[in-house]
Design a protein around this nucleic acid. Structure first.
Length: 880
RNA sequence: GCGAAUGUGGCGGAACUGGUAGACGCACUGGAUUUAGGUUCCAGCGGCUCACGCCGUGUGGGUUCGAGUCCCACCGUUCGCACCA
């Protein structure tokens, strides 16, 4: 052993020890309480690990090491979400097969993760691109298909020519692809859809069963967007007997419906447009079709045109004019609304813009001077509803509509079915094929028709359906995707007939929808996972991952889980019992100010956005740029930070997201090299609460590195065999309690702080009881496992420390013998007393009154009230 | 615009159900050790004040003997959603 703490020596040593001894293999013993602790598995990008990854991973690692020491059977696996666009794009550019790139990236990620000493059971490692895994992803797809939850639909989708793929709405940001910012156009295409909407009620209701951050639950609720209302039929006036169906959440306001609005894509547009209005309507519809989402968002003014047509009000029988406007969306409800300007802001705006009548049907509260009134109040102008508050009026109207056959109660959700196919190469092939009508060999270019209306599932025995090997990964111009070009793979003969395979592949979400299930039973060749494994391990007890997955991944995985539950494969209704999002680690704080072309700093107040993402000087329009200043060049002045050289110039002090372009990325490899994995782990945990967003600080790591060195030094000191006693004993028990409670609550920053306090005390102890040092090492173990193992060995114990039970504390020893009692007079602190714990009220009051700091504040005053908080505080209220 | 979170020293952050604000660490200052730098150790470190003391948890009000913590209004920052009928 070397003289000094040398992480570069001890860390590889213990990593090798753990690997050789299978220290973290999941115990089979069913008598142990189970704990399934899961990290969101990463996409192994070419950039390698980021300091953000170890944050969540270290948190779960600490928790797992603690639980093992507490005697739990811990399942803590790691794997790779390895399908994905970057590998495919790299393949397109270089011709390297995505599998090759993916495996190389996985190797890098694995090396980096292992260098952090994380306690994964690597025997359960999985990779979503592994055919043995793909087989079961496809199997689950077929399960969905057979349960009627997967269907094909021609859909206008977001076709991105540059990526050669269709993107989900949520993957399109401002009309560009989320990855790569390529332009996106709308195009109708045959798609596989998953009927997630069939589960919307359960996905909503079962959020009550899980311990998740409230914000995440709210986001899922909003995403599902359930609203109750009614479907109402307004008869067409053309004598066809057909009706315009609308959805409303405010059936109580039916009497206030002064006009109707339908979406430009609504099928009735043609029928309702009168000959004299047809040209205007057609022009509006055509314009709406060409408007990008960006334009639609940017336009605040309501636009629309009257069709000239009318429908019949179901109750009053009045003729109601029908308008076309793009503020009504075809994708929600029925694509048609009854406009009630009196109680709806959007309808009010539209009515004002086009001079349409407005009728209030809810009495606004006195003094209300707004426009549309959305609040509660008695119904007015509404015949049989008059006087009823909103909720009752709604119910009464729905009952009336149902009785008279004019409408029905209806629940609408914002959630839409999930577009599940991608026109990509690097994904799981969808295990479906179709009959082909042809006279020749379609592989040779014979004319053929693929009967997409007759899908046939691939036989389970034939799974996995593998991807063909290609040399050219270019998607080409065919939106049907890369696989459409692989004709030898695509077309095949069976019993003399030709068939064509589905050329769409699954989205990246597919693999991550069920990986937590495969981890329970990763090598099973006969099933996705066994029933026993599911019973033993589900649900996941703690799931840690980024908040960016708050909606999509977590909602999709819950959906699949519920389908599997219905199929009898899992019992637990929810996959993830407790969920925590680690906060992002930002780059180091940067100081910036505007400068002009000559490099002269310019005050913030003189800068204006130039409308092009940049800034200009207000006075002369000269272009300004944002310049970084070193920390030494700035100082804090009052509430603001300014340049030292020019205190009139205010600088912006803030931390930014780490990004390659900003050049503020911290590579964990560098930190490990400089300070060791234990220091990196400890520092990331010490930075602040796990859930908080926090800036990295290169200097700050010194603090934890010093702490580790001092822990090392402590163990090199002479020790006594005598048991700890007195205040030291109490400190030890208090620290055990604090660290235990903090680990349970994932409050690692304060837990580490408690260890630092203990170390400071131990460093001063003379004599130094060996037992106390051992306790420090045992408590340190989950946080800095390499050092703790090394010190445990130095102390003369056989490895591994992981096998040593977690220390227990005696609550009786967690209280101090003496307490400090604060004395307040009229709420202000006037003195402090040191008294024995559990002191009687009378004794404390007597001591307080006698305290010299307090006496002068009581003299000559009348004592009105005395408050006694045991062991804490005496408060006197005086008058005069 | 709507929704959620958040605001505490120069910095990251502590503070259990209202009860000693600033734990722990970084940076900084002084001292010891050292040829020197670094390391290590000791001490100090919210602001004002010679001091008694006063002020201080984004701002302004309120409740309370007592508010970082509870209530009301506002401001800033971050995240999410964005015409969802």
């Amino acid at each position: 052993m070397s003289e000094r703490y040398a992480p570069s020596e001890i860390e590889p040593k213990w990593q090798a020890y753990w690997a050789a001894h299978d220290t973290f293999r999941t115990p089979e013993d069913p008598s142990l309480p189970k704990a399934y602790i899961l990290d969101m598995f990463p996409y192994p990008s070419g950039a390698g690990l980021h300091v953000g990854h170890p944050e969540g991973y270290t948190a779960t690692d600490i928790y797992c090491r603690y639980l093992r020491a507490k005697g739990h059977a811990v399942l803590h696996p790691m794997g790779w979400d390895a399908f994905g666009l970057p590998a495919e794009q790299y393949a397109i550019q270089t011709g390297t097969h995505p599998a090759v790139t993916t495996q190389a990236n996985i190797a890098t990620f694995k090396r980096q993760i292992q260098s952090l000493g994380l306690s994964y059971d690597w025997s359960r490692e999985l990779d979503t691109t592994d055919p043995a895994y793909v087989k079961w992803t496809q199997w689950i797809f077929l399960l969905l298909y057979k349960r009627g939850l997967a269907y094909q639909q021609e859909k206008p989708v977001n076709w991105c020519p540059a990526l050669g793929t269709v993107l989900a709405n949520e993957e399109v940001i401002d009309g560009k692809s989320e990855r790569g910012s390529h332009p996106v156009v709308r195009l109708p295409l045959r798609q596989w859809m998953l009927k997630i909407t069939a589960y919307s009620d359960r996905l909503l209701a079962d959020l009550d069963l899980v311990k998740w951050p409230e914000s995440t639950k709210t986001m899922q609720e909003d995403w599902i967007g359930r609203s109750e209302g009614a479907e109402v039929r307004f008869a067409l006036m053309d004598g066809s007997g057909e009706a315009l169906e609308i959805f409303t959440t405010r059936p109580d306001t039916l009497y206030g419906a002064t006009f109707m609005v339908i979406a430009p894509e609504h099928p009735f547009v043609e029928r309702l447009a009168t000959p004299e209005r047809k040209a205007a309507v057609d022009a509006y519809v055509a314009a709406a079709k060409n408007r990008s989402d960006l334009d639609r968002k940017a336009a605040k003014e309501k636009t629309g045109v009257a069709t000239g047509g009318y429908v019949k009000h179901p109750i009053t029988g009045d003729s109601v004019p029908v308008w076309v406007a793009d503020y009504v969306l075809m994708g929600y409800g029925t694509g048609a609304i009854m406009a009630v300007p009196g109680q709806d802001e959007r309808d009010w705006e539209f009515a004002e813009a086009f001079d349409l009548p407005i009728l209030r049907t809810v009495q606004p509260e006195p003094g209300f001077d707004g426009k549309a009134f959305l609040g509660d109040g008695p119904a007015i102008n509404s015949d049989f509803l008059n006087g009823l508050p909103v909720t009752e009026a709604k119910a009464k109207m729905i009952a009336h509509l149902e009785q008279s056959g004019l409408g029905t109660k209806r629940v609408e959700t914002r959630l839409r079915d999930w577009v599940f196919s991608r026109q990509r190469y690097w994904g799981e092939p969808i295990p479906i094929y179709f009959p082909v009508e042809t006279d020749g060999d379609p592989r040779q270019g014979a004319a053929h028709v693929i009967r997409y209306d007759q899908p046939i599932p691939v036989d389970e025995a034939e799974l996995p359906l593998r991807l063909p090997d290609l040399e050219d990964f270019n998607p080409g111009e065919d939106p049907a995707g890369t696989l459409a070009r692989a004709v030898d793979w695509r077309f095949f003969q069976k019993d003399g007939k030709w068939f064509a395979r589905e050329t769409n592949t699954m989205p990246q979400w597919a693999g991550s929808c069920w990986y937590y299930l495969r981890f329970m039973d990763p090598k099973n060749p006969d099933a996705a996972f066994s029933a026993e494994a599911a019973k033993r391990w589900l649900p996941v007890d703690l799931y840690v991952g980024g908040a960016e997955h708050a909606v999509l991944h977590l909602l999709y995985a819950r959906f699949w889980h519920k389908v599997l539950q219905d199929a009898g494969l899992v019992e637990a209704p929810e996959p993830f019992g407790r969920l925590v999002h680690q906060g992002m680690i930002l780059g180091e704080v940067e100081y910036t100010a505007f400068v002009d072309a000559s490099g002269q700093p310019v005050a913030k107040e003189d800068a204006r956005p130039d409308g092009d993402g940049g800034f200009k000087r207000a006075s002369d329009g000269a272009a300004l740029k944002v310049q970084r200043f070193p920390e030494e060049a700035v100082e804090k002045k009052g509430a603001v930070t300014v340049l030292k050289a020019q205190p009139a110039i205010q600088v912006d002090a803030r931390a930014h997201k780490m990004s390659k372009s900003r050049g503020n990325v911290i590579n964990p490899d560098d930190v490990v090299k400089a300070h060791g994995a234990d220091a990196l782990r400890l520092f990331e945990m010490f930075l602040g609460p796990l859930e908080a967003v926090k800036p990295w600080s290169t200097g700050g790591i010194q603090g934890v590195a010093r702490f580790l060195e001092r822990s090392w030094a402590l163990v090199q000191k002479p020790m006594t065999g005598e048991a700890p006693s007195g205040e030291l004993l109490r400190s030890l028990h208090k620290t055990i309690r604090k660290v235990t409670e903090d680990i349970e609550a994932l409050r690692f920053n304060t837990g580490i702080s408690a260890l630092m306090i203990l170390l400071n005390e131990l460093a001063k102890a003379d004599p130094l009881p060996k037992e106390a040092v051992e306790l420090h090492v045992r408590l340190l173990h989950p946080f800095a496992p390499h050092l703790a193992e090394e010190l445990w060995e130095t102390l003369g114990h056989p490895p591994s420390l992981q096998a040593v039970p977690w220390p227990a504390y005696d609550p009786a020893l967690c209280v101090d013998a003496a307490v400090t009692v604060a004395v307040q007079v009229n709420g202000k602190l006037r003195g402090k007393l040191t008294l024995p714990a559990g002191v009687a009220e009378a004794d404390a009051l007597q001591a307080a009154k006698a305290d010299e700091g307090v006496v002068k504040w009581l003299e000559g005053k009348e004592l009105v009230k005395t408050i006694w908080v045991p062991d804490k505080l005496v408060s006197f209220v005086v008058k005069g």
